[in-house]
Design a protein around this nucleic acid. Sequence first.
DNA 1: TAAAAAAGAATGAACATTCATTTTTTTATA
DNA 2: TATAAAAAAATGAATGTTCATTCTTTTTTA
Lengths: 194, 194
Amino acid sequence: MAKLQKSIDKRNALVKATIELVNNAGFHATPMSKIAKMANVSPATIYLYFENKQDLVNQTYIDVKAEYTKYAFDTYDENMSVESGFELIWKRIADFKLKECEHAMFLAQCDNTPIIDEISRQEGIKHLQPLLDLWERGRQEGIIKPVSDYLLYAYAINPLSFLMMAQKRGAFQLNKTHLEEAYQSAWSSIKVCK
Amino acid sequence: MAKLQKSIDKRNALVKATIELVNNAGFHATPMSKIAKMANVSPATIYLYFENKQDLVNQTYIDVKAEYTKYAFDTYDENMSVESGFELIWKRIADFKLKECEHAMFLAQCDNTPIIDEISRQEGIKHLQPLLDLWERGRQEGIIKPVSDYLLYAYAINPLSFLMMAQKRGAFQLNKTHLEEAYQSAWSSIKVCK
DNA sequence: TAAAAAAGAATGAACATTCATTTTTTTATA
DNA sequence: TATAAAAAAATGAATGTTCATTCTTTTTTA
């Protein structure tokens, strides 16, 4: 009840500020005072929305992860064929990582450091289930290689994180052609070869 | 002169402690005092070997990156064919990431956060040159896809980082068979298809 | 006008770094 | 080779700052 009365805008502003500051300076160099300032809020106000700094970053992670997977699966439905379902999801993920670069970067940072609680990490993983289900179906139909989800993810999805980071650092620019090539690589790395 | 007298062992112990603590707690939660304690040294002593905390972590990064690439290219020579050269390097990298897991994890953390200075990051990248040269040769011979180094790296090498992290988190175990499959995926994602 | 939300200032702990000494190593001399 | 003076290395404690969090008061909302 109390919570519902509090302004959701303020919570969102805090989450947004956290993402931006952690991306630019790292967790170690983002004090609560800066987060508050960027969100136009008093430091004390943060504690009306979050238990402490750890809780703030955990919740931010879960929020962003949920947004990411919502975007990824938004236009997917389970009746699609394995191949076209995968293509759809892959391209949505690519889209997200390149357009919502800030959010994708934040996830990459969280996924490669111990700044997130193990519990929140697990929470974040759950959202990926539709993709894992698709792969399982693909394996049963003999279309997808009968290997661990981790191997499939490593070759089909994870490269996009690397490309996103490289692009963010200005090292190179991903265009439409690259993207199509990348998709082909992804698909051929997980499909069963005839 | 003065520097040579100082015990290289102490510097190494400090670097080692930094890797271990940053891996387990993150940069934000590794105070100099803990690093000193783990290296059996007084906090003040750190400042005889490093300018400050940032310098310590930068140097640690460069050290580990150099060790990584030294290992990767150790048995490679430029007269090898593109395909066997690539296989050799890939397998050495895989070996390193799985055996020297702590070091590989540290690199992954540094490569996905702003804890390292841009200058040190650039320094670290230089070491990778032999692989880039091999790819260039491969492109000229029509064996390797004529695409950006970043795309090749994303699909051929980076997945190993993801698999290493997954393994480290205990999520799954990479065995010989997996590794061979992973290599095949890597190679087929960068070679020109006949 | 009462309850909820927000604010700014205060608090106390943690931390990076420096300081003043002590210990160890090196050098020079006999 | 033994010894003492000098230099270098190392130390534990001190310093001053930064920061997360809390407290008290004010403002807003119902």
